[in-house]
Design a protein around this nucleic acid. Structure first.
Lengths: 206, 206
DNA sequence: GGACTGATGTCATCTTGCGACATCACCGTA
DNA sequence: TACGGTGATGTCGCAAGATGACATCAGTCC
């Protein structure tokens, strides 16, 4: 390869990013994240290692490109919803569930199994969730919500979504993500309220 | 150093770990996390790079050694408290605030400023928080609490603690961490409940 | 056609993280 | 005292991650 006639090639690849993402997903799935080198990803995409690092900050980023879309949808939904802060966040996640995740269970499960197999990837996902939360909190504050309230509403909403998501991707789950979100929101309300009674049992402690 | 008379030295350093942690904290503070190499940390501690990696999984771990103690205190407090799940978790964090953090504001602030200066360290902290939460959830389940309830109570408690902690380490804060936890817990209750009233304003939305 | 811009490939380098091996201190035992 | 085992450490080497510097080529504008 690299015959002397095409030493420093350059023909632009408009889909270079997409090809690298696909190659990374494949290889991570085939042999695991840590067992895959950036050089291999680039090779499968027909590109150079250096090109990979120009398009992605590091190896993990190839798995987290959808985050931008998710954040946009979430922020837009928050901005357009007119309700109490926590309800607004829940509604936004509800919309995300319908618009983005609804018909991609298989892909989501595959991605999730890859992430669960690598602590490094789990860290990155946590960070992505964190910046997502920051964006939602900012969107809430944009609507006049106080900082503390915005933070707590966002974090509670994220907790609800995470719990719902975990159930949704679990094997043998046939409920819709949207329904699970509603269910988890109700549960969270039950858990955090009722500090007085000895045995609250507000909902179904399962 | 390493005169030819002491080529492969070995005299055991009982405080090697502590010295490396101190050296790492100093260097991270002096010139930042990414600008510090493991070789430099080891050199300042009078040890070899290889020894660092035998005591710490990676460069970041030198900053997160206190996590074990924190988890132990938290789990023990959860096990010994007899109250509703969410109240139990809040009480446990309350205890942590008094036993571990109370009289170390300066050290905590320094550590926090280092972490905030590096995305890598933020990721690791998120992961640590995650496993801490898992331990608390497990402790809750040990007491017979259902999985969903345990997860939501834990996550809500972590949210409260994080919000309180963020205020506590912020410059110009003179409240105690314990008081802030109580305050944030009340705020979270207000935020997650009351879906009906237009303007709840349960506490001080700031 | 010629200069300019931008994406890419190549080369070099540093750092992380770890395996393999030798070395030395310490400890128990004869 | 001598001897052997155990364990912590230092040295060497290396794969992979990540990045800077530079050359090369395609397409575009003048």
């Amino acid at each position: 390869m690299t015959s002397d006639t095409m030493v420093g090639m350059a023909r632009w690849q408009p889909d270079a990013r997409a090809r690298l993402e696909a190659a990374a997903l494949e290889l991570f799935h085939e042999r695991g994240f840590e067992q895959t080198t950036v050089t291999e990803i680039a090779a499968r995409a027909g590109l150079d290692k250096r090109t990979f690092y120009r398009l992605f900050g590091d190896k993990r980023e190839a798995l987290f490109s959808g985050g931008k879309l998710l954040e946009d949808v979430l922020v837009k939904a928050v901005a357009e919803t007119d309700a109490a802060p926590f309800e607004t966040v829940i509604a936004a996640f509800h919309q995300v569930a319908n618009e983005i995740f609804a018909d991609r269970l298989d892909l989501v499960r595959m991605r999730q199994s890859i992430i669960e197999g690598s602590p490094e990837l789990q860290e990155r996902e946590l960070r992505k969730t964190g910046s997502l939360a920051a964006a939602v909190t900012a969107a809430l504050r944009e609507k006049g919500v106080g900082e503390t309230t915005a933070t707590l509403a966002t974090e509670s909403g994220v907790t609800v979504f995470r719990a719902a998501f975990a159930r949704w991707v679990a094997p043998g789950c046939d409920a819709s993500l949207a329904d699970l979100i509603a269910e988890m929101a109700a549960e969270l309300r039950a858990v955090t309220s009722a500090p007085a009674v000895p045995a609250p049992n507000a909902a179904t402690p399962t």
